[in-house]
């Protein structure tokens, strides 16, 4: 068969190519920058290089050990703490949002309690979290939860709860009631119906929800900026602090940290990829 390289196809591929380049360029730039020595990332236009001419782990050395022989400045904190803080708070926040959201969504979807509740929950997402963050900060300060792992996890759980709730509710709505009624008639208690039948059926949806919520929490900047000081500073906040009066923005160090920050969502994505690719097919019923 002849390949159909018509004009229309050519244009189509060109557009796709441009989109792919636009999407991947910053990532690729970050990846190579992470291994460039300071001279290469502070350079001017004519010396700009794609691949590092002298690849180095100096940037990693700098963010993890605070000093590097290439940089005259030193850091008072290494990146280990923020990475750990991000992992803990994003994970716990995700756990809170997904557990509460799933249970709430199931209740609303199945038992129809609180007709306006779903909209009420959604409303939490209609204004930016920033709008309520100052009062939250005052409350958190009063409760002694500023710069604590539980304080940050809790607010992450609250802020992302609407996402988890709405996603799960749509999925639960799609699970046919008859499936649950069948299990009920066959001798299951309602709770058992939930964890033996319904939950396994929305497994793929649950995985998707976990990934979305985790990414939201993982990439938060504003909340962590306001609710942490020192001990539980997260990666985005820490990254912003990677500047110095002498050298300005430390792009190499930021790129190095950015490359690390990409890892957890990617790993999570790979783990649940099977479910994402398979899509959300609830095929128990013949419609």
């Amino acid at each position: 068969m002849k390949s159909h390289l018509t004009l229309a196809n050519g244009v189509r591929y060109a557009v796709i190519l441009i989109a792919v380049i636009a999407a991947l360029f910053p990532v690729a730039w970050m990846a190579t920058m992470a291994f460039k020595p300071v001279a290469e990332w502070t350079t001017t236009v004519q010396d700009l290089t794609w691949l590092p001419k002298e690849p180095t782990f100096g940037n990693y050395e700098f963010i993890f050990f605070g000093t590097s022989d290439q940089l005259i400045v030193s850091l008072d904190r290494s990146a280990t703490g923020p990475i750990f803080a991000s992992l803990v708070t994003a994970s716990l926040g995700t756990l809170i949002a997904v557990v509460a959201g799933t249970l709430g969504a199931y209740g609303v979807s199945r038992f129809g309690v609180g007709k306006n509740l779903p909209l009420g929950v959604l409303q939490l997402r209609l204004f930016p979290p920033l709008a309520v963050l100052i009062p939250v900060m005052i409350m958190w300060a009063f409760l002694g939860m500023i710069d604590t792992w539980w304080g940050l996890s809790l607010i992450y759980g609250i802020v992302t709860l609407p996402f988890a709730f709405w996603l799960m509710m749509t999925f639960f709505d799609e699970v046919p009631r008859e499936i649950e009624e069948a299990a009920l008639v066959e001798g299951c208690s309602p709770w058992r119906v939930f964890y033996r039948v319904t939950l396994p059926m929305v497994k793929a949806a649950l995985a998707t929800t976990i990934l979305f919520v985790f990414i939201l929490n993982w990439s938060d900047y504003v909340i962590a900026l306001l609710l942490t000081r020192k001990d539980w500073v997260t990666i985005p906040v820490y990254m912003n602090a990677l500047t110095s009066a002498m050298t300005g923005q430390m792009y190499g160090a930021k790129a190095a940290l950015g490359l690390i920050a990409v890892i957890p969502p990617v790993i999570l994505g790979i783990i649940i990829q099977k479910h994402l690719v398979r899509g959300l097919t609830f095929g128990a019923l013949k419609q």
Partner: peptide, 20 residues
């Protein structure tokens, strides 16, 4: 309750647990 009545029920759309 339904689970204690000891009735068998076959649904119009079968209600098979397709995940197992």
């Amino acid at each position: 309750s339904a689970r204690r009545r000891g009735v068998g029920f076959v649904f119009q759309n079968y209600a098979i647990f397709t995940h197992i």
